[in-house]
Amino acid sequence: MPKILKVKNINKCIGCFECMIGCASLNFHSHTLTKSAIRVKTKGGLQSKFAAVICVGCTEPACAEACPTEALVPRQGGGVVFDGKKCIGCERCVPACIVGAIAMDKQLRKPIICKQCGACAQLCPHECLAMEEV
């Protein structure tokens, strides 16, 4: 069964950013935190707790629908599969994602897309993240 990344207990987050450090190095071979498909930030507002912006694994992904070149196609079980060779860097996927999970890699001019690999969840010391069967 395919699995999808879920944010479980974000109030337990300590802001260590190991999920981002792991994602950037594993999936994008970079030590640069902005090259992570998961983005932990503070919520803002009165309490300013942490929030994790992740690909929520849509079964009808708007980002893929917005993609004119089929570089993004729906993934079985939810989310998308990205083919960088087909991507022309038009950035239409970015605003299409309603949860704001897609950022652009400024150097490569390609979107940073979550593979639903679950490495971030393995690196969370407080189990704020988990991979769940669809």
């Binding site: 792991g22 190095s25 010391p125």
Partner: peptide, 25 residues
Amino acid sequence: GETDIPVTDFKSYYSTFRWLYKKVV
């Protein structure tokens, strides 16, 4: 900043990173 710092030897780095993470946690 967003300076791109490529991982030079992925296999070696990531396995050591994971090993150290476990040692800490």
